[in-house]
Design a protein around this nucleic acid. Structure first.
Lengths: 329, 329
DNA sequence: CTGAAAGCGCTAACAG
DNA sequence: CTGTTAGCGCTTTCAG
């Protein structure tokens, strides 16, 4: 900047103003400076600018990782979420700092905020560590979590409407005549728990008993589907449908069923969750509950910015919708 | 920092030194300062520190996006790559700035470097824009690209050994008695082109003619597999095996074949590429050429750091290996 | 061992 | 319209 000032025969203030598009500077001088800057390939040093302005155009996106199984980043749904956040942040002129943290130490997610690198944290998934998140929020770390809304929650969540998601899926299966619907998902996770509640309420409305033997705490890891089907077989329960709490789980379930010689959807109807892109290309195409990823990204960014502007952190629940495909026909 | 200095009754210099672990400071003073810092939850402001030190512990990871199809972030392989980079960077104490750019404007990838936000750029995929990358390298932007090594290339690439990858896959199919092996992948992409070369050389060594009709320029998008199979059908070519240039493509191909009533591997053997985690859980489990993602991340980071330390940018070609599974038995 | 002072690259009053 | 000056939060000579 000093160089440019010298070459243009003005002070750095003028250069700064010109580059910032201030109208306090002569049209002619401005264009000369601009030209000079371009030809010197000069770009403003964002770090110094931030320091001076006490501003910051970065947001941390944190993906919790299972410490042992070093790979919670395994689900394509997260990828699309990250992509959508990247887009939403770019739209608002923010940079995205991506990091992983051990899911057992979620509070470590606040580090980039504490060190002044970012104005806030977006966390993908709450992973049952409600308490640590509350603590962060209590420390006034601007924070948005993708996940389920919970009682006595101090932090802001953005998530799908899990209960009606679960209900939609189950009602759909009931409507196509299924009565023995297995539920695959770990109900210790808040989101899954709410989907289970939707599942139960749909069953009850239809006068179908909820059979706990049909509920398997499947993990979201790729082998989850296979293990869950094995578990059901071992329990010796009959079922004519499966509601899986992620598309990945749904797909792996279909594969496992097929290996047992059961056809989808004829013997067993399968519904997944998320509507990742792959679902529509799978064989058979997977019926699923769509989570609005694009809107989610935007909503999370908006919620975070609202917080940094001092507004209260209003949690958001986005509508979910059923996408009917061949796996449940 | 000033606060701490005041409370500790010392100057900011001393606080700075204490926090930096300088041994120029009295043991007793140091611990007092440390204690104070902890209790005030003080963390050093990285931005200011960077400015003063003219250092920087951030690296930009850039994912090119197809502008029209707003979704090159669709392949799980990229996700694992990003994860591996995140780990490798963290290991070295670096932050990761993730951004997407239009694949047609790859040079925009340099922005975070130009603005001083990062010390270098890691680009995931070269996407046929060799020239723009060369330009960036010529501008002395520290740059590492995941992709294929090409003649007259000024920038540094890290990639799998595509030619032997293609060869391994093809040899394996030949060894299991297949002779009409379709090649699925867009040979305009350097990596694919090299795999195709490996494919051809394996065929030639086995005395099998290369039939151009068996080569389909399938895209890496999810519908690529289906379209490719349709294309082969339309061409009316016979084939008893498919070598797909990504696992995603391989899986979608299997689905498409199944829909035509052709069984895998009995009627058609399929080999993929990448060895994404899903492959082993797919039905049937997918034979594939493994790309060493973990090593790739580390290698890319190492190559970038080497450049920033003024060393020449040595490109790296990582070994690939064949993972045999049921889809080709 | 510690403090005073200068300065990283930039911006914003405040005076011209 | 433009320049001077001060200072964002930190580190580091250079003197004690």
């Amino acid at each position: 900047m000093a160089d440019i000032a010298r070459l243009a025969g003005v002070s750095t203030s003028t250069v700064s103003r010109a580059l910032a598009g201030s109208k306090l500077v002569n049209e002619e001088t401005r264009s000369r400076i601009m030209e000079l800057a371009r030809s010197l390939k000069y770009t403003i040093n964002v770090g110094a600018q931030n320091l001076r302005l006490k501003q910051n155009r970065s947001v941390a996106v944190v993906v919790p990782t299972d410490a042992k199984v070093h790979q919670s980043l395994t689900d394509p749904f997260f990828l699309s979420m990250i992509g959508s956040l990247a887009d939403a942040l770019t739209e608002q002129g923010f940079d995205m700092l991506l990091s992983r943290v051990d899911a057992e130490q979620l509070d470590a997610a606040a580090t980039p905020f504490d060190t002044g690198r970012v104005i806030g944290i977006i966390l993908i998934g709450q992973w049952g560590h409600h308490d640590q998140l509350n603590e962060m929020a209590a420390r006034h770390v601007p924070l948005v979590v993708w996940g389920a809304q919970m009682p006595q929650q101090l932090y802001c969540t953005v998530g799908g409407d899990n209960q009606s998601g679960g209900k939609l899926a189950t009602e759909h299966l009931l409507a196509s005549g299924r009565r023995r619907i297995a539920f695959l998902g770990d109900t210790r996770l808040p989101e899954v728990e709410q989907r289970y509640r939707g599942y139960c309420s749909a069953l009850q409305s239809a006068g179908v008993d909820v059979d706990p033997a049909l509920c398997v705490a499947a993990s979201f890891l790729p082998e989850g589907g296979r293990l869950a089907v094995a578990e059901l077989a071992q329990r010796g329960v009959q079922f004519d449908a499966v509601f899986a709490c992620s598309d990945l789980l749904g797909m792996m379930t279909i594969n496992a069923l097929r290996e047992q010689g059961r056809s989808v959807p004829d013997d067993v109807a399968v519904v997944g969750y998320d509507d990742i892109e792959l679902s529509s290309y799978f064989h058979p195409p997977l019926t699923t509950v769509r989570q609005p990823v694009r809107e989610a990204g935007r909503a999370m960014v908006a919620a975070l910015l609202a917080q940094t502007e001092g507004q209260a952190a209003r949690s958001v629940e986005l509508p979910t919708s059923l996408i009917q495909r061949a796996s449940s026909r």
